[in-house]
């Protein structure tokens, strides 16, 4: 997502002070980035597992917000009418909300599944640098807390945070997201027949803009290739 050429070579920059709100193609571009981001946010919100972090998109969104703030302050200096100003303010606030809500929902997932993400390379790569630091430190402080209150007081052989006992065959105390949970998903293009189970007994035929409630696991790949979106 975001690599579709629409905004990758963004002409925005914070230095761009003579930016005008009414300028046609730029306005269109602005709305499309925010629109993509809104979809990314919705997907993140609905998906049970953490989704890839799009650095470029996030960077563009943040640049855009700065730019809008800049423009707004230039306007505030000049005598312009209150209503217009508050509309612009509103626009910034909405984008800011989107940005914060997006990062918040990611943090929540990182906290919940930190150890699972850390041991699964594919998931680990989906975090931003700051999020990786966060996950690592979060595990550290949680582990310390657990050790102080519970683990150090238990008998030898039962003191691991990740295993019930040393005799367990694998780390069996790591919470993982439920990938079999149901999600609302909407196809963005004709998908064709989608197999929902291993045996091929349940198949659904998805056309453009079809809305289905399906398990997350079978649609996971479609979401990664941006052929469906979650709503």
């Amino acid at each position: 997502m975001g690599e579709d050429g629409r905004g990758a070579g963004s002409s925005f920059g914070t230095q761009d002070t003579d930016f005008e709100w009414s300028q046609g193609h730029r306005a269109a571009q602005a709305s499309s980035d925010v629109e993509i981001f809104r979809r990314v946010w919705r997907n993140e919100k609905a998906a049970p597992e953490i989704l890839p972090y799009d650095h470029l998109l996030l960077q563009r969104i943040r640049e855009q917000i700065l730019l809008m703030e800049d423009t707004l302050s230039t306007f505030t200096g000049a005598a312009s009418d209150e209503l217009t100003l508050s509309m612009y303010r509103m626009d910034i606030d909405r984008t800011m909300f989107l940005l914060r809500a997006y990062l918040r929902i990611r943090l929540l997932k990182i906290e919940q599944f930190a150890m699972h993400i850390l041991r699964t390379e594919e998931l680990w790569e989906r975090l931003s640098q700051q999020e990786q630091d966060y996950a690592q430190r979060y595990i550290d402080i949680l582990q310390k807390h657990m050790e102080q209150t519970v683990l150090s007081k238990l008998p030898f052989g039962y003191q691991s945070m990740l295993r019930q006992a040393t005799s367990s065959e694998e780390d069996d105390m790591i919470p993982e997201p439920t990938l079999d949970t149901f999600v609302f998903c909407k196809s963005k293009e004709p998908i064709g027949s989608l197999q929902l189970d291993d045996r091929g007994e349940e198949v659904v035929d998805m056309l453009t803009d079809d809305l289905y409630i399906l398990r997350y696991r079978p649609v996971k790949r479609l979401l990664e290739t941006d052929r469906i979106e979650l709503v």
Binding site: M90, F97, L99, R100, A101
Partner: peptide, 17 residues
Amino acid sequence: SIDLDLTVDTTPPKDPY
């Protein structure tokens, strides 16, 4: 590190004021 306070703005804004 991300230069953003995440603890504010917890409900979608309807009105900036």
